[in-house]
Amino acid sequence: MRLKISHTTSYHYDTPVPYALQQLRLRPKSRANQVVENWDITIEGGRKQLTFEDEHSNTVDLISFDPGASEITVHCQGEVDVTDTHGIVGRQTGFVPLWLYQRSTSLTRPGTQVRVMAAALEQTGNALNDLHRLSSDILEKVPYSTDQADPELSAEQVLTEGHGVCQDHAHVFIAVARHLGYPARYVSGYLSMDGQIDQNASHAWAEAHLPDLGWVGFDVSNGISPDDRYVRVATGLDYSGAAPVSGLRLGSAGEKLHVKLQVEQQ
């Protein structure tokens, strides 16, 4: 399927910002199941400083704000052809050793509830089925809900809250999967929800590495493995390593974020 994406992120500040940098992980890559036909990023209120590949082979743009800017807009536009591979992404490539994906991070550190959840999961010997069951167990325990104030909860905190968004689901999945011994990672990307062009936000899901299949995606929030409506953009050990935008700025200006995202099936 061809997906046409238009993604605009704007930040407004109540006072001018003297100096700020943002890392953008907003460039999808062509790979076995997705071909990026075209992709452009334009910036208003700032400029691109450089582009590099991070350790997870994400293509990262570093942008700076124009001095004294009080508004910055990042606009991404492009078309991506996606093939349904039932969530199978394939073998590990690049130099990151698989064991790195078993390291716990502050957002995925296992606590009592993660351990309980891991222990409660029935292990049948079929890893794929087990992880699908884990995915549905998580959705049952943590129903999807957007009324959450804190955008950066750890897996353990999400289980305490008892509800969450895609990012929270991914963190719980990663924490439990790692605790069970699977290398696991966070994926940020786009999802085209059927029957609607306007999407609320960009999407996130998890991938686990299985000995025979390699990396397999699990979208806990939607109870499926990613298909041809999903565009993979960036991966990391957790949200902080794959976030679409992560920045740092001088001064104490208040920030307002506005996102407009359209994903159109063609």
Partner: peptide
């Protein structure tokens, strides 16, 4: 492998 994997001095940001 544990000598590296469990070592905080290994910096993932240097991979590659």
């Amino acid at each position: 492998v544990e000598m590296i994997a469990n070592n905080d001095a290994f910096l993932p940001e240097m991979i590659g």
